[in-house]
């Protein structure tokens, strides 16, 4: 539907509105310029980063044991709890029954589909082994669809939370 708007002569000049708008911009410019950086509302983003609260739910991480092996045992609890079907796991038999403390099972594939993930945190709630956690990492943009499928090898490398 088209709406008819009657502009007055003053409105049709446009210049007063432009001057008014520029006035507001310049006012804020000078206000921020003379405020000390610690009290400013804005952050110069790529150079400086804002700290997020510790409960922030960002990119996933798979925790590892001290020897570097994954804590995950592919129990599928996270995949079952996931409301967005964003987790895909394929289990694997390690075949270490002869060792003293057999682990028996580990994920062969563990893929998180970031396009589907809604960062609800149900996976870390469901995890019985404290393997999957959501970190404070929020810079998670990719250049292609394929890069949005985060495999096991990358999930292990996600930096830990700062508090840990």
């Amino acid at each position: 539907m088209k709406k008819e708007v009657k502009l007055s002569f003053w409105d049709r000049l446009y210049l007063p509105a432009v001057v008014k708008g520029m006035g507001i911009t310049i006012k804020h410019f000078f206000k921020t310029l003379f405020t000390p950086p610690s009290k400013r509302y804005t952050v110069e983003f790529p150079e400086r980063k804002k700290d997020v609260p510790e409960w922030y739910r960002g990119l996933h991480r798979l925790n590892t044991h001290e020897d570097g092996s994954v804590k995950c045992v592919a129990c599928y609890c996270c995949a079952t709890a996931c409301p967005a079907d964003a987790i895909f796991i394929e289990a694997e038999d390690i075949d270490d029954l002869d060792s003293e403390y057999p682990v028996e099972k580990r994920p062969k594939q563990f893929i998180i589909d970031l396009h589907r993930c809604i960062f609800c945190g149900f996976c870390q709630e469901a995890c019985p082994k404290d393997a999957i956690v959501l970190t404070n990492e929020y810079e998670i943009t990719q250049l292609s669809r394929e890069q949005g499928l985060i495999p096991l090898e990358e999930l292990v490398k996600t930096p830990k939370k700062k508090m840990d």
Binding site: A74, C75, Y76, T80, A91, E92, D93, K105
Partner: peptide, 9 residues
């Protein structure tokens, strides 16, 4: 059937 599928799925 070892580690092939969780039964609740």
């Amino acid at each position: 059937f070892r580690f092939r599928k969780r039964v609740w799925l």
